[in-house]
Design a protein around this nucleic acid. Structure first.
Lengths: 118, 118
DNA sequence: ATATATATTTAAGAAAATTAAATATATAAC
DNA sequence: GTTATATATTTAATTTTCTTAAATATATAT
């Protein structure tokens, strides 16, 4: 499983956003959801995903609850009130960043012809 | 000088894009241009910018030419043919990624009311 | 003189992601 | 029955990437 190099720096925000709209998710579910939402473009590696979840938990932004489903353990994560707040801020910031990025990536207008009246 | 955390993973592509449309730029100029295009949202740190330039040069994607302007040295970078090709690919990939990100960050439609006919 | 702007280099450290393997269970296919 | 596939988490080693910070050097404005 390999992910887009562009995921760097956005992973935390994506996780917060998914948890903000789904209330309760487990790690594997998050990775599947991202793959689905991105049309398989983004595949989260577990080595990236789980450490982020642990970190967010340690920072008090998530709480985890383990359940056994079909004989397999699942750790459900949900946002704390602080997590809900941070999710809002981060999503807003990332949306702004993508707009900025879009402007930078815009084809450069070649105004030389107009300037010279040609 | 501090940059957005979201810049991670996109810096290389941004540099390639700017060089693709400006033919010749020096490091300081690139950092100013990014700040301008992003309305001061993104400020490249030199510790990030210059090492990327060196790496791209070592990979044969850029060539550097030093000039002395106003008594100060400037290193002008320009894309090699391979750099031009990679710029196209990377810009296209990053544009696609920003679209995907936009979809993920979209407010989740709350269809529960419709589903239940309420 | 001093501050500010221009311009590059580079070292130390931290943060983040990749790669890869280990562990464990359920189910479908053969 | 055993093999493969899907589900699910953990974690260690390494690499990549970025931040922070300092060093170096010149021009211009105050």
């Amino acid at each position: 499983m390999s992910s887009s190099e562009f995921i760097k720096g956005t992973l935390k925000t994506i996780i917060l956003k998914l948890l903000a709209e789904n209330k309760q998710m487990y790690g594997y579910e998050i990775s599947q959801k991202v793959e689905e939402l991105s049309a398989s473009e983004i595949k989260l590696t577990y080595g990236a995903l789980y450490p982020v979840l642990y970190k967010l938990e340690n920072e008090g932004l998530l709480v985890a609850e383990t359940e056994v489903v079909d004989g397999r353990a699942r750790k459900y994560y949900s946002l704390t009130p602080q997590g809900v707040e941070l999710a809002k801020v981060k999503v807003s910031e990332l949306q702004k960043f993508t707009e900025t990025l879009k402007n930078i990536l815009l084809p450069a207008p070649n105004i030389s012809l107009e300037v010279w009246g040609v």
